[in-house]
Design a protein around this nucleic acid. Structure first.
Lengths: 116, 116
DNA sequence: TACACCTGTAACGAATTGTTTACAGGATGG
DNA sequence: CCATCCTGTAAACAATTCGTTACAGGTGTA
């Protein structure tokens, strides 16, 4: 579980999603408990539209997930929570993930690096 | 060692450095052995100026390190290698790192998330 | 009806990033 | 001297990202 090793492309998307102070803070806040967007926006101190965009990016990366619920007084509120991801970043692990990269032009040729 | 928990800002910089297909491939290639920039550029199939910029970014993030050496035939060549980083990304770990974020406006107020 | 919540999205400017092409220097070998 | 290999950097441009402002719709209560 914990998403058994994402694809190279997926990994890039996850890293890109986390590589932003505001989004990092969003994940950090959600790590303390689920929350709905308007409240979360007030909590962190950003505009709702902006938060909305970042939440979309984080959800697209699979780091958080949102569910639309109806509160006791009938209001529609979207709750977000973290997804329990677990990424281990080391040089060898990245080398493994890079094998499944498709973004740039294909060029996976084995070659000697150090010949001295 | 392995850089005992970077600062929030440092973490963002590291993630941003890795959140790019080309840079990920660069790290992956260097994980197989150190190399100098011209050879690495041919290896990966990118222009040298472009590779140079990405190497700067990776080195600034502390993920790789370069040393200028003189080859047997007197040529100055800059060798790069990975730095043995080891990042463990989980929601709680990110929450911890987010405490040391300084980028946006300060706003580290404790607050209830789930009250339902 | 008007107000206070909640949701979402479109439009637009500003800042950042990715990439190419071109240039400049040093050392070796024909 | 010219060609080749190494290094680095500056200029210019396209593409993306970040953030604000403004709009549109739903529900419940005074």
């Amino acid at each position: 579980m914990t998403a058994a090793e994402p694809t190279g492309d997926e990994l890039v998307e996850m890293l890109a999603a986390l590589a932003n102070p505001l989004r990092l803070r969003i994940v950090a806040t959600l790590a303390g408990g689920r929350d709905y967007v308007s409240h979360l926006a007030r909590e962190i101190g950003v505009s709702r539209p902006l938060l909305h965009m970042h939440l979309r990016r984080l959800e697209a990366a699979g780091l958080i997930s949102g569910t639309l619920e109806l509160s006791a007084d009938g209001k529609a509120m979207k709750y977000y929570e973290v997804t329990g991801f677990d990424l281990h970043l080391t040089a060898p692990a990245l080398a493994e993930a890079a094998k499944t990269l498709t973004r740039p032009d294909p060029d996976q040729g084995p070659g000697p690096k150090e010949h001295s």
